[in-house]
Computed example of a mutant assay.
Amino acid sequence: MRLQDVQPRPGAKKRRKRIGCGESSGHGKTSCKGHKGQKARAGKGIRPGFEGGQMPLHRRLPKKGFSNVQFRDVYEVVNVSSLNAFEDGAVINEAALREKGIVNRNCDAIKILGSGDLSRKLTIEIKNVSASAREKIEKAGGSIAA
C-alpha cells in the first residue's frame, strides 16, 4: 500500500446538496423549499418557540411558586460521625470546624445532623443541632452550649 492509494471509507465523504441548479438535479425550481409560505422566503425565518401566532407554550403554562434564592440561608451540614476527628473535651465552634477542614464552603450557618456515631465527649457551641444529633452528643457525655 502506498500513500496515494489511501482512500476514505466508502460513505465517509458526502457531496453537498447543490440547490437551484436545474430541474434534472432534483433540487431545482423551488430549491427544496416547497411552494410559498414564510419558510420559503429569503431571510432569517421564524424564531425558536414561535407557534405561528398561537399562544406559545411558555406563556400557556401556569406560573407557579417563586424563587427566594437571593434571601435564603445557605447551610453547611456536618454529621456527628465527622466530629470524631476532635480530641476528647474539645470545644467545637465554627472556627474549629474550619480549622480542621470539615467546613470550608462559604455559608450563612452550620447545622449538625445525627448521621453516624460519636465516641468522644465534646462541647458544641453551634446553634443549629438536630434532635438526633443532640441525643447522640449527650449520650456520649458531651454538651451543647448554644
Score class of each variant (00 low, 15 high):
residue 46 I to F: 05
residue 47 R to N: 12
residue 47 R to V: 14
residue 48 P to K: 13
residue 48 P to C: 12
residue 48 P to F: 12
residue 48 P to Q: 14
residue 49 G to C: 07
residue 49 G to H: 09
residue 49 G to F: 03
residue 50 F to Y: 15
residue 51 E to S: 13
residue 51 E to K: 11
residue 52 G to R: 02
residue 52 G to N: 09
residue 53 G to M: 07
residue 53 G to Y: 08
residue 54 Q to L: 09
residue 54 Q to R: 15
residue 54 Q to P: 12
residue 54 Q to M: 07
residue 55 M to C: 10
residue 55 M to E: 09
residue 55 M to I: 13
residue 56 P to V: 07
residue 56 P to W: 10
residue 56 P to H: 04
residue 57 L to S: 13
residue 57 L to V: 15
residue 57 L to P: 00
residue 57 L to A: 15
residue 60 R to L: 06
residue 60 R to M: 10
residue 61 L to V: 13
residue 61 L to I: 13
residue 62 P to V: 06
residue 62 P to M: 07
residue 63 K to P: 01
residue 63 K to W: 07
residue 64 K to C: 08
residue 65 G to V: 10
residue 65 G to C: 13
residue 65 G to Q: 14
residue 65 G to P: 02
residue 67 S to F: 01
residue 67 S to L: 05
residue 68 N to L: 14
residue 69 V to E: 15
residue 69 V to P: 10
residue 70 Q to G: 04
residue 72 R to G: 07
residue 74 V to K: 11
residue 75 Y to N: 05
residue 75 Y to Q: 09
residue 76 E to K: 04
residue 76 E to C: 11
residue 77 V to D: 00
residue 77 V to A: 02
residue 77 V to C: 00
residue 80 V to L: 06
residue 81 S to E: 14
residue 81 S to V: 13
residue 83 L to G: 01
residue 83 L to N: 02
residue 83 L to H: 04
residue 84 N to P: 00
residue 85 A to I: 14
residue 86 F to T: 02
residue 87 E to T: 14
residue 88 D to Q: 05
residue 90 A to Q: 04
residue 90 A to K: 03
residue 90 A to I: 02
residue 90 A to W: 05
residue 90 A to D: 09
residue 90 A to N: 05
residue 90 A to Y: 06
residue 90 A to R: 03
residue 90 A to M: 08
residue 90 A to L: 05
residue 90 A to V: 06
residue 91 V to F: 07
residue 91 V to N: 00
residue 91 V to I: 09
residue 92 I to E: 01
residue 92 I to G: 04
residue 93 N to C: 03
residue 93 N to W: 04
residue 94 E to L: 12
residue 94 E to G: 12
residue 94 E to K: 11
residue 95 A to Q: 10
residue 95 A to C: 00
residue 96 A to D: 08
residue 97 L to H: 01
residue 98 R to K: 13
residue 98 R to V: 14
residue 98 R to H: 09
residue 98 R to T: 06
residue 99 E to Q: 12
residue 99 E to L: 06
residue 100 K to P: 00
residue 101 G to P: 00
residue 101 G to C: 06
residue 101 G to H: 11
residue 103 V to T: 06
residue 103 V to F: 06
residue 104 N to C: 05
residue 104 N to I: 03
residue 104 N to D: 01
residue 104 N to H: 09
residue 105 R to W: 10
residue 106 N to K: 07
residue 106 N to Y: 02
residue 107 C to S: 12
residue 107 C to P: 00
residue 108 D to F: 02
residue 109 A to M: 10
residue 109 A to L: 08
residue 111 K to W: 00
residue 111 K to L: 05
residue 112 I to C: 06
residue 112 I to P: 05
